[in-house]
Design a protein around this nucleic acid. Structure first.
Lengths: 162, 162
DNA sequence: CTAGTATCACTCAATCATTGAGATAGTTTA
DNA sequence: TAAACTATCTCAATGATTGAGTGATACTAG
């Protein structure tokens, strides 16, 4: 530990400071999401749901279904139904019955939701671009590797939760 | 767009993939928070509030007040009061009047909330430790620098929001 | 020093998202 | 075919959140 004065930034190389940084990041992203929700007149739940439906990483393993959304958002089925009702009424997503298993509903976002998505994603993209510009391609690849590793670790940590 | 095959990892060095990684991280952290909230019988709002009150990064500029919490969580004053009532009733935080400005309330978390905090923070710490172990100190310092830069950019992005 | 204004936290009735137990329709197993 | 299972939806009850307004404290100008 070579931290000498309070403002030496290299203290951030220890575990505790890392966790603090990550939670701060989490807070900033949540705040951005809330801001967006308020501007759009949507509930934060609905925006979180939209993010899951729209984000390629979330829909990596197949189309998103209400059950998938329930797991992702930690809500009960009743709440998911209400949330989807709101999103459908406001024209952001539609429910499409699976052809193979007709119990299953696939969630598709409508064309006009794309503009919404762009507006939602762009502040993060802008901030990310700004931060990225200060690092070399090699460094950026290291950082991406870390983020991937961390995501994998966190995802693994949830699994054994009955 | 130079992505060749789905599993090539070096696609993650472009901006789009970065944003996807960051949102995935955000989702994982939120999910961890929700799990914790459910286990503790707390509302997600209350856990978010606790996180703000407990986290050193959040309380960097002075003690946390209800107004600060309102800005951070994007709720109205009525909701904040109710949330603090719950947290106080369950013994996690106490309200302390500021001595200088007696309109202001400072939020302090009680000793028994420390154990709660440890349990809340430890899964993230464990995952972070695991991910960190695969990188050199120099790389870790680069990654921390990026996280700090990104947080600063995101924080700056919120300011001009009236 | 005093009136006027701003700020901080709180109150309370109304609103509306969420819960949780069940109903419904579809699928798989025996 | 009947039984067991699964995915989604329904709906009354619950309770968190809203939003306007209150009381208390602080600042500021005259």
């Amino acid at each position: 530990m070579q931290s000498r004065s309070p403002e030496t930034p290299d203290q951030a190389s220890d575990l505790f400071a890392y966790a603090v940084l990550l939670r701060a990041l989490n807070r900033e992203l949540n705040k951005a999401t809330l801001d967006f929700a308020h501007r759009q007149g949507l509930h934060s739940t609905d925006v979180h749901a939209l993010a899951v439906i729209m984000d390629p990483a979330a829909s990596a393993d197949g189309p998103v279904t209400p059950t998938r959304l329930r797991e992702e958002l930690g809500l009960t089925s009743g709440a998911i139904t209400a949330c989807l009702d709101r999103l459908q009424r406001s024209g952001h997503v539609s429910r499409v019955r699976d052809t193979a298993d007709r119990r299953v509903v696939h969630l598709a976002y409508n064309p006009d939701a794309r503009a919404l998505a762009r507006e939602y994603f762009s502040p993060l993209a802008r901030a990310t671009e700004s931060a990225r510009s200060r690092f070399t391609p090699e460094q950026l690849s290291t950082i991406a590797a870390f983020l991937r590793a961390l995501n994998a670790e966190l995802a693994a940590g949830h699994e054994p939760q009955p």
